[in-house]
């Protein structure tokens, strides 16, 4: 195991965060704060509590996930796409590193950033709303698991993309809408039966549901099924990455 290489890639990627501090941290924190002001502060008091949780607090887990999911995908995809685009990937390909070590460095760094971002947004939320965590361990566990899974997904996206447009299109056109529709601002039990059934095909519903369960102990579908689904996504992403490295897809001609 070339720990030194994993460390080098990991630190290099984290250093990129500091250079793009506004883009990576400040901008998602700012937009989340705006959601809290509008939905939590202005509209929230006029809403009825959902499953006993005040609306402003109800939306916290979903808003954290909204930022964490998009940033995990963006960071990891950009992290691997940039060297492909500039050509500096030659160095990683010629280095004595295994695919697993490269993955550990890039995905580890992207997931670390997402976890930090999640914690920062959590802290920001506490400034606007007061709430207590029912399952702190599970909250953190889900945050890490989801960050890693989506960073892996982002890594795959970064390998697949052949232009900056494709990099942006997935977080913007897929992740963001699915998260919005995934019960960030409502419980799927509030949907008419038909749409509730449609919503069950949206994987993000399960992530938001389990994360909210970890926060407040309330769930529409239950944490076990969510955990199973998250782990399935994680394993699927790992399998795809292994296949990519085995075949050299988009990396080695």
């Amino acid at each position: 195991m070339n720990y030194s290489a994993v460390r080098a890639i990991y630190l290099f990627e984290l250093a990129r965060t500091w250079r793009t501090l506004f883009q990576s941290i400040a901008s998602p924190v700012l937009s989340t704060a705006l959601y809290f002001i509008v939905f939590g502060g202005a509209i929230g008091p006029r809403m009825q509590p959902i499953d006993g949780v005040p609306f402003a607090a109800f939306i916290v887990p979903g808003l954290i996930l909204l930022a964490v999911l998009t940033e995990s995908v963006s960071n990891a995809s950009f992290g691997i796409y940039l060297p492909r685009f500039t050509g500096t990937i030659y160095e990683i390909l010629s280095a004595p590193v295994s695919a697993f070590e490269v993955l550990l460095g890039f995905v580890g760094a992207a997931a670390t950033k997402s976890v930090l971002l999640g914690l920062i947004i959590f802290a920001t939320a506490r400034l606007f709303v007061s709430f207590e965590l029912v399952h702190p361990f599970w909250s953190f566990g889900f945050l890490v698991l989801i960050s890693v899974t989506f960073a892996l997904f982002g890594f795959i996206l970064g390998l697949w993309a052949d232009g900056f447009e494709k990099l942006q299109i997935i977080p913007l056109m897929v992740i963001s809408p699915l998260t919005f529709l995934g019960g960030t601002f409502y419980s799927i039990d509030m949907l008419p039966p038909l749409w509730r059934n449609v919503a069950l095909f949206n994987p993000i519903v399960y992530l938001v549901d389990s994360f909210r369960w970890a926060f407040y102990g309330i769930a529409a579908v239950g944490p076990a099924i969510s955990l199973a689904l998250t782990l399935t996504m994680l394993v699927t992403c790992i399998v795809v990455v292994v296949v990519i490295f085995k075949t050299g897809y988009r990396l080695r001609t």
Binding site: S4, A5, F12
Partner: peptide, 17 residues
Amino acid sequence: MFETVWNTTVFSRGLFG
């Protein structure tokens, strides 16, 4: 492009273990 000469050289050394 956005790295310093020192950092990028140190990175290369680390990458090669």
